[in-house]
């Protein structure tokens, strides 16, 4: 199995490895199953015991309550707006900049490029305190722009696109140049269509990161209406006793996790390639 590629019959080592794999898979799946089970149990029962989640009584009340009242829809909408906005803008400016650095020449390019590459080493936490102050002065907290913008500065996307453009044969463009097409035209007509795979990688990466971002929205979205899913869920979970019950919370978690899991199953192949490709460069 490890390296045998189906040449041999299963031997003892194979059996042990398979057992380990199945055991691990159970560890990975069990908490999710458990939580889904809890989501279908009445809250007052869970108050007493959480044993026997597969035995009745069951209830759909927790999900009905969510549909009727929970703020989770608003949070989800905010998350989508922020994640899509951030993905779109990151793709746009990273592609332009990646192309600019890889394929064009202009005064000051070297120094700009060195600066940007050095920026790769800066972690978000190193700038979050002053950034918060700056955004407060500009009254940008609790706005979509305020949630989207900070991430645009990080050079990962530019670097990725730069690498990609470096691999595109320059002859394609030089041919277009000879036709006297304008630089912008070449970029949009000739170069851009070639970058779709890299765009997908960067897009998926950015989307997932934005969707799961925790620290910045925690300090920037202070108005409950502006909470993203991550922050909204966090705000309800630090003390189970004060909320509407474990079953309701779990239903909320299931509900909130569902869209992204469905997206994942749907785009699995792309996501996997994107993630492996993105960090592998």
């Amino acid at each position: 199995m490890v390296l045998g590629r189906g040449v041999k019959k299963l031997d003892l080592v194979d059996m042990l490895l398979l057992a380990a794999l199945v055991g691990l898979a159970i560890v990975w799946v069990a908490p999710i199953v458990w939580v889904i089970g809890l989501a279908f149990k009445p809250n007052d029962v869970l108050m007493r015991t959480t044993g026997g989640i597969f035995a009745p009584p069951f209830t759909g009340k927790n999900f009905r309550d969510i549909l009727a009242t929970s703020a989770v829809f608003g949070w989800m909408l905010n998350s989508f707006i922020v994640a899509i906005g951030q993905t779109f803008l990151t793709l746009a400016i990273s592609t332009l900049a990646g192309y600019g650095f890889a394929r064009t020449d202009f005064p000051g390019k070297r120094i700009a490029f060195i600066l940007v590459i050095a920026g790769l080493a800066v972690p978000e936490q190193a700038i979050i305190v002053p950034l918060h102050t700056m955004f407060a002065e500009a009254h940008l907290h609790n706005t979509y722009f305020g949630l989207i913008a900070p991430r645009l500065a990080f050079p990962f996307g530019v670097f990725l696109m730069y690498q990609y453009f470096k691999g595109v044969p320059r002859e394609i463009e030089e041919a277009a140049m000879l036709d006297n097409a304008s630089r912008l035209k070449i970029f949009f007509r000739v170069v851009l269509p070639l970058t779709v795979p890299a765009q997908a990688t960067l897009g998926i990466y950015t989307f997932l990161h934005a969707w799961n971002e925790y620290f910045w929205p925690l300090v920037s979205a202070t108005k409950p209406e502006m909470y993203t899913l991550t922050i909204g869920l966090a705000a309800t979970q630090t003390n189970f006793a004060q909320t509407e019950g474990i079953g309701f919370l779990m239903a909320q978690a299931v509900f909130a996790g569902l869209p992204i899991l469905i997206l994942y199953l749907f785009f699995q192949r792309h996501i996997v390639t994107a993630v492996a490709g993105g960090a592998g460069k």
């Binding site: 600019g100 890889a102 394929r103 020449d105 005064p107 140049m177 630089r183």
Partner: peptide, 17 residues
């Protein structure tokens, strides 16, 4: 690896970022 003339206009590509 650059293609075309060296001109300051090209800096516009990287300006938004």
């Amino acid at each position: 690896d650059a293609v075309g003339r060296r001109t300051a206009w090209n800096a516009l590509f990287i300006a938004p970022y």
